[in-house]
């Protein structure tokens, strides 16, 4: 038991970090209603890494990461640009096309990299089991830095996220804040995809915050709940995957995903207390 715990300590520490920072961003993302764009961004980040590998750089090198950042920023920029114009193609279709083309290109490139097919599986499942303490420390520091930015501008970001859905036209100053938000988001996603894979990142973003939003209203309680759900879910998922001998990224995704659906069904069939609180 003790050996198991020691072996799992690093991945658990890494996934707690991921769950923490992604749970926070997830609450923003859900409020902004830009859900599918994350899966597209994660896919593009993975694609950037693959292109770096194809050009012969090492997997963890800064060049590869730079390429990832560049790709994600390009997509976000392109999407923001496309959105401002009247278009005959719905925004969701544009996101879908970006995702689809990103995955197709990754599949094509995978054939040109030795063990590329493995790499596709890895971008889907991640390899959180093999993170080192050094890496955990590094992303811990990075996330702490990003957390600091968000601590300073947190209130501004929250008000922006709430306005975002109702009124997409922004003043220049707000646009800059928005840009800062997206840049920090991109950095987090690129780092997280390298460790956890596309689907774990997407699920940790959306699932805990969606589950929290089912039952909680205020930002603080939503965040607290999504942290709790995310961390418990990842830790349980890692133990489950270890004992059942399946990959842990997918195990966490399946666990958290099922949890959200169960909670949603509970919410659906539970006699609501909302009406009692606020009689019409």
């Amino acid at each position: 038991m003790k050996e198991t715990l020691l072996f799992l300590a690093t991945p658990i520490a890494a996934s707690i970090l991921l769950a923490g920072v992604l749970g926070y961003f997830g609450t923003h993302i859900l409020t902004r209603g830009i859900i599918f764009i994350d899966i597209a961004i994660a896919q593009i980040a993975a694609l950037g890494t693959m292109i770096g590998l194809l050009l012969g750089f090492a997997e963890e090198s800064s060049t590869v990461q730079l390429l990832s950042y560049l790709f994600t920023l390009l997509v976000i920029g392109g999407f923001a640009f496309l959105r401002t114009k009247e278009s005959v193609i719905p925004a969701e279709a544009v996101i879908g096309i970006i995702y689809c083309l990103g995955l197709a290109l990754a599949l094509l490139l995978a054939e040109r990299i030795p063990g590329g097919s493995n790499y596709i599986t890895k971008t889907i499942t991640g390899n959180i089991l093999w993170v080192t303490w050094e890496k955990v420390l590094k992303i811990g520091l990075l996330f702490a830095g990003i957390g600091l930015i968000h601590l300073v501008f947190g209130a501004k970001f929250i008000s922006l996220s709430e306005v975002c859905r109702r009124d997409p036209s922004l003043k220049l100053k707000d646009t800059l804040y928005n840009l800062l938000f997206y840049v920090t988001f991109c950095i987090v996603v690129v780092k997280a995809v390298l460790i956890g894979g596309i689907f774990l990142v997407f699920t940790l973003l959306i699932a805990p915050s969606a589950a929290a939003a089912l039952f909680a209203q205020s930002w603080l309680s939503r965040m607290a709940w999504s942290w709790l759900i995310g961390i418990l879910g990842t830790v349980a998922g890692i133990f489950l995957s270890y004992s059942m001998n399946v990959s842990n990224g997918p195990a966490i995704v399946v666990l958290l995903g099922l949890l959200v659906f169960i909670m949603a069904l509970v919410r659906l069939f539970k006699p609501t207390d909302q009406k009692m609180k606020a009689p019409s």
Binding site: F36, I39, T203, V254, F261
Partner: peptide, 14 residues
């Protein structure tokens, strides 16, 4: 109160 897109995305990942 959660956008339906969230559930669709989670179902896809799941």
């Amino acid at each position: 109160k959660v956008p339906i897109e969230a559930f669709i995305g989670i179902a896809y990942a799941l």
